[in-house]
């Protein structure tokens, strides 16, 4: 079960899965962090940071009531307010959310056998269904 070769052979689909994951994770973190820096510097805040600090000990529905007058449902609070740095930062979180999906698609393209291609495509479809379900 053991030999002296230092290089473990890694499947091509694994490497593609990993590469796609690196690209989208870095993109997600950049899209999340850069607007957040602008936010912390006080640039175009949808909810001012000092208000967040004042109310963050409250349950989420009450927090939104106190800061914006009503609780939020869905992604509207992000997409309707893309002129604000804190809302743009949330696009980065959304990118992180879909990163495994893109990694699965990349792996499916480079899959070493038909069965793995099929399994990754099934997973990708289930993933999309799962995202849609959890959005609602």
């Amino acid at each position: 079960m053991k030999d002296n070769n230092k290089n473990a052979a890694v499947d091509k689909m694994g490497l593609f899965f990993g590469k796609a994951m690196v690209i989208f994770t870095i993109a997600g973190i950049i899209v999340m962090v850069v607007p957040a820096i602008a936010y912390f510097l006080g640039y175009k805040q949808f909810i001012p940071h000092d208000e967040v600090v004042r109310y963050w000990a409250n349950p989420v529905a009450k927090f939104w009531m106190l800061t914006k007058g009503a609780p939020v449902h869905g992604y509207g609070w992000i997409f309707d307010n893309l002129g604000y740095s804190d809302s743009v930062s949330m696009i980065g979180v959304m990118l992180l959310l879909v990163t495994p999906l893109f990694a699965m698609i990349a792996a499916a393209i480079k899959a070493s056998g038909g069965i793995f291609r099929f399994l990754f495509f099934v997973s990708a479809i289930e993933f999309i269904v799962s995202v849609v379900f959890k959005m609602n």
């Binding site: 607007p35 912390f40 967040v52 939020v72 992604y75 740095s85 979180v93």
Partner: peptide
């Protein structure tokens, strides 16, 4: 995200 429970100040 849809409930607004993710905020840049914390995340």
């Amino acid at each position: 995200l849809t409930k607004g429970a993710i905020l840049p100040s914390i995340v």
